[in-house]
């Protein structure tokens, strides 16, 4: 634990964005998430940590209903986004996912140009009035993804030709282009080298000014570095949830302590 700089950042604006109550997730007969309650604040980075297979990614995917794509997955309980239940039958997951964007473990740019990758979301959601508008959105998103300077001269080049770190920042730019309110990140740095990881972490910190960010990570250092709130998952249970500083310095639950000191995981 040589890198335990705790993010000492103001968490003054604490308006709840997502509120999950009694969430249960089943994969066929497996009970993957057991009765999880969690409040995710706006303009805050919330980190989900825990050993592999603890259900943190599964829970993340319930927040924008990506689990709908898996046939055998069932979700029970309430997940409210701004007070509206996202599992309500009236809710169209397509509309939900425009509000709750997602960045994945492995950079997954589409086999299209850099421009088209970013323009994909705005195009399908009809966000741009005209070509100039779209150009604008693409530039703004790429800037927000902290990759604009590297790619501005080759927007027509295929996104798959970028380096791993650039690809992941492109994917982040792609996600923010649809103007989401929440950004879910599923181990966004696990496939990246340390330098690229640092760039992405810096970017995450910037994104906090505009979005509510939820990040799943297997690296406790990363959670400590980028998040204000941390949730610790173990065997499908939410063991402990609170201020990042408190979780890492003064955990209440013995399991949390065991994990952050490296005895389980």
């Amino acid at each position: 634990m040589n890198d335990m700089r705790i993010a000492e950042r103001a968490t003054s604006v604490t308006e709840s964005k997502i509120s999950a109550k009694g969430v249960q997730v089943y994969y066929g007969d497996t009970h993957a998430i057991k009765d999880v309650d969690v409040e995710i604040d706006d303009k805050t980075v919330t980190a989900f940590i825990g050993p592999s297979g603890c259900g943190k990614s599964t829970f993340l995917r319930t927040l924008n209903r990506m689990n709908d794509t898996i046939d055998i997955c069932r979700v029970q309980g309430d997940i409210l986004l701004d007070g509206e239940n996202i599992y309500d039958p009236k809710v169209d997951p397509v509309q939900l996912r425009a509000k709750v964007g997602m960045v994945f473990q492995k950079p997954n740019p589409f086999p299209k140009s850099i421009y088209d990758n970013v323009a994909y979301g705005p195009r399908i959601h009809g966000l741009a009035k005209n070509k100039a508008d779209l150009d604008d959105i693409v530039e703004k998103s790429l800037r927000r993804g902290a990759i604009w300077d590297e790619v501005k001269d080759r927007l027509d080049a295929p996104g798959t030709g970028l380096s791993g770190g650039q690809q992941q920042r492109l994917c982040i730019a792609r996600a923010v282009a649809t103007e989401p309110e929440v950004l879910l990140m599923d181990e966004p740095c696990s496939a990246l080298d340390p330098i690229a990881t640092a760039q992405v972490e810096e970017l995450i910190d910037d994104l906090r000014t505009k979005f509510s960010v939820v990040i799943v990570t297997h690296s406790m250092q990363q959670a400590a570095r980028v998040s204000q709130k941390t949730a610790f998952f173990h065997l499908g249970n939410l063991v402990e949830f609170g201020e990042t500083g408190q979780i890492f310095t003064n955990p209440i639950d013995p399991r949390t302590e065991a994990y952050i000191t490296g005895r389980i995981g």
């Binding site: 794509t69 994945f104 994909y120």
Partner: peptide, 10 residues
């Protein structure tokens, strides 16, 4: 690829 696109709300 599918996840990436669906995650954007496609």
């Amino acid at each position: 690829m599918r996840d990436g696109s669906l995650g954007l709300g496609a």
